[in-house]
């Protein structure tokens, strides 16, 4: 890439010193190709120079700053209204999101009741033995369903206690919630049986 452009540029812009100018002019005299290249460069440079200092029309020139001031004041208003819009949209999103999340967490009582009828008592037993599940059910379902669950729970406790009595496993009996509450789940005969065993074992 033979690039004489810098020499041409410097020469035409008067950036060369006297010695450099003389050397360049001598080179031009010696080389026809350099001369032609320089002529082409000068031609382009002349066209560029003619367009370089074109002035804008007075009307347009005067309108630039006016337009800028107008735009600046409308930008200020636009920013304020945009901020308000974003704030409003954020509030709406938060409210809708909160509403949706609370709806998802809140189980439909009717659905839970229909769920209870879908399962057999033994299947429900297994759910009831899971404390967390039964606790959340109790919060979200109606009284009838609560009573049904309670009755299933009582039956479950009662069955487990009776099994323990039959096997004479007193520790299992004592392990149920509170000893004082145990007799809520047992018949009078079953309670007598427990006391008899306790006396027999000289615990009481």
């Amino acid at each position: 890439m033979n690039n004489n452009e810098e020499k041409f540029f410097s020469y035409l812009k008067g950036e060369m010193n006297l010695r450099e100018r003389k050397e360049f002019e001598d080179e031009l005299k010696r080389s026809e190709n350099l001369n032609k290249e320089f002529s082409d460069y000068k031609r382009i440079n002349r066209i560029i120079d003619e367009t370089k200092n074109i002035r804008l029309s007075k009307d347009y020139s005067e309108s630039i700053i006016t337009k800028f001031r107008r735009r600046k004041s409308s930008n200020g208003l636009r920013k304020i209204s945009q901020t308000i819009k974003y704030a409003f949209a954020s509030i709406i999103i938060i409210i809708v999101g909160y509403f949706l999340i609370s709806q998802i967490n809140k189980e439909n009582p009717q659905d839970v009741n229909s769920l209870l009828t879908q399962y057999s008592d033994s299947e429900l037993d297994s759910y009831i033995n899971d404390y967390d599940y039964s606790n959340s059910l109790e919060i979200n379902i109606d009284i009838d369903a609560v009573q049904r669950i309670d009755s299933l729970y009582s039956e479950n406790i009662s069955a487990s206690l009776i099994e323990s009595i039959n096997e004479k496993s007193l520790i299992d009996i004592v392990g149920f919630n509170s000893v004082a509450d145990v007799d809520e789940y047992l018949s009078e005969d079953e309670v007598d049986l427990i006391y008899a065993e306790l006396i027999n074992k000289e615990i009481l």
């Binding site: 003619e50 074109i54 007075k58």
Partner: peptide, 16 residues
């Protein structure tokens, strides 16, 4: 190019 008043300048400018 109506921001340029002078016609001759306009033509030269369009060329470049």
């Amino acid at each position: 190019n109506d921001v340029i008043d002078d016609i001759e300048s306009k033509q030269k400018f369009q060329q470049i």
